[in-house]
Computed example of a mutant assay.
Amino acid sequence: MNDSVRPPFGNFTTASPALEVRDELAAPVADALETWGAREAAASVLYVDTDPEKADTAVFCAAYDAPPELSANCVVVAAKRAGEVTLAACLALSTTRVDVNKAVRTHLGARKASFAPMDTAVELTGMEYGGITPLGLPGSWPLLIDEAVAAAPYVLVGSGRRRGKLILPGWALTRLPGAEVLTGLAG
């Protein structure tokens, strides 16, 4: 790996352009980077190698001196209406919480919305729990991004695995397939 790349924040031993270390990523994430039509966005993604035992947000931020306000969580939501289930991913800063009961439910036109079961999220994304990321999600899913994430100069997200994280500009996330920036998604 190329350790001469310097990430914009944090204290990481190794950082590399994610396109150069695709083997370190979950397969759907590596594929998404490789085929992402927004080439400038794909080239902006950095991979930082991290300990999988320190993947949970609070522990991670403390261990790697990563600002929580630049760390984002990607959660999978199941929205239901008339027996139909729509899955979506929501991306919000770790210092906030996704408003599943109002913002997500209303935006998706659902009667009820809740976090998808862990097994469902893992199986359908092809990613590890604790590493689910907005890159490489199933193409039919909406990706709802809180406006604060889109406005952030850089954001830390999962790599699809518990080992390692990705750092990329907030604007790059808005160029992912299915991405929609929402005001009030999280608070």
Rank of each mutant, 00 (worst) to 15 (best):
L166W: 07
A172G: 09
R162V: 09
P138M: 08
V104A: 03
M127F: 05
L143W: 11
Y129K: 14
G136D: 06
I167D: 10
T95I: 05
V104T: 00
P153T: 15
L93H: 12
K102T: 12
K112R: 12
L135T: 13
A110C: 07
A151P: 10
A121Y: 04
T133F: 02
R97S: 11
G160M: 10
S114Y: 07
G164D: 04
G139R: 13
T120D: 14
W141D: 05
I167C: 02
A103I: 00
R162E: 01
G164A: 05
R162K: 15
G158M: 01
V122H: 01
A172M: 09
L173M: 13
G130Q: 02
F115D: 15
L93M: 12
L143G: 04
P142H: 09
S159V: 01
L173Y: 11
S94G: 10
V98K: 00
R163V: 08
L168V: 12
G136V: 07
R105G: 03
P134E: 09
T96F: 12
G158V: 05
G131F: 07
A172R: 12
A110V: 07
V155D: 12
A103R: 01
N101V: 03
A151K: 14
R161I: 11
A103C: 08
T120A: 10
G136Y: 11
L137G: 06
I145K: 00
P138D: 09
R97E: 11
F115C: 03
I167E: 05
T174Y: 06
G126M: 09
G158F: 01
L168A: 14
V149G: 00
I145N: 05
L143V: 13
H107R: 07
L168I: 08
F115E: 13
L166R: 05
P138L: 10
V104L: 04
G170K: 05
I145P: 04
H107Q: 04
R161A: 11
D119E: 14
T106S: 15
V98D: 02
L173Q: 11
Y129I: 07
R162M: 06
L156R: 11
G170V: 12
L137I: 13
M118E: 13
E123K: 14
T95L: 07
G170N: 06
A121V: 14
L144R: 09
Y154G: 06
A113D: 12
G109V: 10
E128G: 06
H107L: 04
T106I: 13
K165F: 11
V100S: 03
R161T: 15
R163E: 04
G170A: 08
A150P: 01
L156E: 13
R163S: 11
G170D: 04
A116C: 01
A116G: 01
G126Q: 06
G109P: 10
G136K: 06
V155K: 02
G170E: 01
T125I: 10
D119I: 09
T133W: 01
S114I: 00
R162L: 05
G164W: 03
W171V: 12
A116T: 00
T125K: 00
T120F: 09
W141I: 07
P138R: 07
L156G: 11
E123G: 14
S114P: 00
A113R: 03
G109I: 05
A113H: 02
E147A: 14
A113W: 08
V98F: 08
V149K: 12
